[in-house]
Computed example of a mutant assay.
Amino acid sequence: MLVSTKGRYALRVMIDLAEHPTDGYIPLKLIAERQGISEKYLESIIKLLVRARLLTGLRGKGGGYRLTRSPEEYTVGSILRLTEDSMAPVACLEPGAKACEHASECRTLTLWKGLDKVINDYLDNITIADLIHTNPDEYDYII
């Protein structure tokens, strides 16, 4: 599993908006400036987040974007599953993958299923609120 730039930037956008809840709707330009991300690239990420109803947008003067829920209600796992093609550690565990013809005798399948569970459980137990209120070094786990 390799998290793409899109996934990392989506998390940064969500954190940025969560850190500025009283600012109302935040213009895309301001988010891009604060995060050092190209506005053009950020547009595609924002569209994805709006389509999934993680954000809401308002056009015109005073427009921009804001979270639809509180930061505690967004998990890192749910955001990354939205932006990534797959979070699976191996191809046979990807969503919609054909059943592997070697699955019945695969000595490593249990290992990969366990790793997939650990990854998803870990990411589903960290919220955007957790990322705002903690020291980044706290998430330096060794598995």
Rank of each mutant, 00 (worst) to 15 (best):
M1W: 05
M1H: 12
L2C: 09
V3L: 13
L11P: 01
M14W: 07
I15M: 15
D16N: 15
L17M: 06
H20W: 07
T22K: 15
D23M: 15
D23A: 15
G24F: 07
L28Y: 04
Q35C: 11
G36P: 03
E39Q: 12
E39W: 14
L42I: 06
E43A: 11
S44L: 15
I46L: 12
I46N: 01
L48E: 11
L49M: 02
V50E: 08
A52Q: 10
L54K: 13
T56S: 13
G57K: 02
G62M: 04
G64R: 11
L67F: 02
R69Q: 12
E72H: 13
E72L: 10
E73H: 10
E73A: 13
V76M: 00
S78Q: 06
S78K: 09
L80E: 05
V90E: 08
A91L: 11
A91R: 12
L93I: 06
E94L: 04
G96R: 08
G96A: 07
A103W: 12
L109C: 01
L109I: 09
L111S: 04
G114H: 04
G114M: 05
G114R: 06
V118E: 01
Y122H: 06
Y122E: 04
N125K: 08
I126K: 08
T127Y: 01
T127P: 00
A129C: 02
D130N: 10
D130I: 04
L131H: 00
L131D: 00
H133G: 06
T134V: 08
N135K: 08
P136R: 11
D137A: 06
E138N: 07
I142M: 00
I142Y: 00
